[in-house]
Computed example of a mutant assay.
Amino acid sequence: MWTAIILSALAMTAIVALRYFAASGVFAFATSKVRPGLYAGLNPQIRREMGWSLVSAAIYGIPAGIVAWGWQNAGWTLIYTDIAAYPLWYLPLSVFLYLFAHDTWFYWSHRFMHRPKWFRIAHAVHHASRPPTAWAAMSFHPIEALTGAVVIPLLVFLIPIHVAMLGLVLGIMTLMGVTNHMGWEMFPRWLVHSRLGGWLITASHHQRHHDEYRCNYGLYFRFWDRLCKTDKGLASP
Rank of each mutant, 00 (worst) to 15 (best):
A58N: 03
P92D: 07
E49F: 06
A101V: 07
Y39R: 14
W71G: 04
W89E: 08
S94C: 01
R47D: 12
V67E: 00
M50Y: 13
F119G: 05
D103V: 10
S56V: 08
H127N: 13
P44F: 09
W69M: 07
L97A: 15
Q45A: 15
R47T: 15
W118R: 08
Y107H: 01
L97S: 09
A58T: 06
W71C: 04
L54V: 15
V125W: 08
I62E: 00
Y98P: 01
D82P: 00
Q72Y: 05
R47C: 11
P63I: 01
R47I: 13
L38S: 02
R115N: 15
Q72A: 09
F112A: 14
M50I: 15
W52N: 14
L88H: 14
R120Q: 15
E49Y: 09
I62A: 02
V95G: 08
I46M: 14
Y90M: 03
L54N: 09
W108G: 09
I121E: 05
L91K: 12
T77Q: 06
A40Q: 14
M50D: 13
F96K: 11
I83E: 13
T81N: 06
Y98M: 07
N43S: 15
T104G: 13
H123S: 00
S109G: 13
G51D: 07
D82T: 05
G65C: 03
A74V: 10
Q45R: 14
Y90P: 05
P116M: 04
L78Y: 06
I46H: 03
I62G: 03
P63N: 00
Y80V: 07
L88K: 11
H126V: 03
W69V: 04
A74C: 05
P87G: 03
A74E: 14
G70S: 09
P44C: 04
A68E: 08
W52V: 03
G65T: 01
Q72H: 00
G41D: 12
Y80A: 12
N73G: 02
Y107F: 08
W52R: 06
F119P: 11
A57D: 06
Q72W: 09
A84R: 12
G41H: 09
Y60N: 07
I83H: 12
S94L: 07
L78D: 10
S53H: 02
A64V: 10
D103N: 11
L78V: 04
A74D: 05
S53C: 04
I79S: 04
A74L: 15
S56L: 07
R120M: 14
F119Q: 07
Y98Q: 08
L99Q: 01
A57W: 10
Y80K: 13
L42K: 13
L91E: 10
I59F: 01
L93T: 11
H102W: 11
W108T: 09
R120W: 13
I62T: 01
H110N: 07
I66L: 03
I59P: 11
E49P: 07
I121A: 04
D103C: 02
G65I: 03
P87Y: 01
P116K: 09
G65Y: 00
H102S: 06
I121Y: 11
R120H: 12
P116F: 09
K117P: 05
R47Q: 15
I79G: 05
A40G: 05
G41Q: 09
L42Y: 02
R47P: 04
G41F: 05
E49W: 06
